[in-house]
């Protein structure tokens, strides 16, 4: 019964051809796969495959160039915005984006991030926030929540000693060069649709030369958080999104929060 409706004319959803057939190395349930796909679906829908240049970071998504079927460049740890600046200035007709994690963008690359945003480079920055250093084994990141246990904070993050979780999206939103800043998640299908809309707007605005478009995506790291993928998504909705509140922070150059 079900097999006879599986025909091309009944197709409603299929993985985009802008993702390669290579099996992703991410852990089961990792948000990176969903974010890669959302981004590539938007690029596909806008017909920008041959005009897009992505900058891959260091971190879990270091091999993003293996999965995205577009032109990509690998950058040194945290330096993706600097590389993106050069590429966009040399080829202003291209759509340039950086794809970075929280250890890359909010820790070692804070200087590059802030100055790139301050210069208002016409790029899209995709910031994946999973509140932990995933690739190196779950150490505390700048975005780790207060009291959250990690490999390097076994008694929970002590804000007296190491400070508060960094809300870098709110921080860069204050800069004049930033045209839009928003925070999204990928734990429900509706959230993925919202993220796609934000990415689409970011691509359009950055291509139109309006300034830096900053999209933060809260994602779960079930391996680092020591939870099952489904539990991790639930925990994220209950705890992470309480501190990192999703929604628009800056829209069309005006603060909305």
């Amino acid at each position: 019964m079900s097999s006879n409706i599986c025909t091309p004319e009944n197709l409603v959803y299929k993985k985009t051809s802008l993702l390669t057939d290579k099996v992703m190395h991410y852990c089961p349930g990792c948000g990176h796969g969903t974010i890669h796909r959302a981004l590539m679906e938007v690029v596909d829908e806008m017909g920008l495959q041959d005009k897009t240049i992505g900058i891959a970071p260091v971190g879990c998504s270091v091999l993003a160039y293996d999965y995205m079927n577009i032109d990509m460049q690998e950058a040194a740890h945290g330096r993706a915005p600097a590389v993106a600046t050069a590429i966009k200035r040399l080829m202003p007709e291209k759509f340039v984006f950086t794809y970075q994690g929280d250890g890359d963008l909010a820790a070692i690359g804070t200087a590059e991030t802030i100055h790139c945003c301050n210069r208002g480079e016409n790029i899209l920055m995709v910031f994946v926030n999973n509140a932990i250093y995933g690739m190196t084994g779950g150490q505390m990141a700048p975005t780790t929540l207060e009291g959250m246990k990690t490999a390097t904070s076994p008694y929970g993050r002590d804000v007296e000693k190491v400070g508060w979780p960094l809300r870098i999206t709110e921080m860069v939103a204050q800069l004049n060069g930033v045209w839009s800043a928003s925070r999204h998640t990928v734990h429900t299908p509706a959230a993925v649709m919202k993220l796609k809309k934000a990415l689409k707007k970011g691509i359009e605005d950055s291509m139109a030369g309006k300034g830096t478009c900053f999209v933060e995506v809260c994602s779960s790291c079930n391996s680092g958080w020591k939870m099952s993928p489904v539990e991790a998504n639930k925990w994220m909705a209950e705890h992470v999104l309480e501190y990192f509140v999703p929604g628009d922070i800056k829209v069309d150059g005006k603060m909305v929060r």
Partner: peptide, 11 residues
């Protein structure tokens, strides 16, 4: 839409 590995095709 949610599958992290894009393994599901829907009809």
């Amino acid at each position: 839409r949610i599958c992290p590995d894009g393994v599901i095709t829907v009809y």
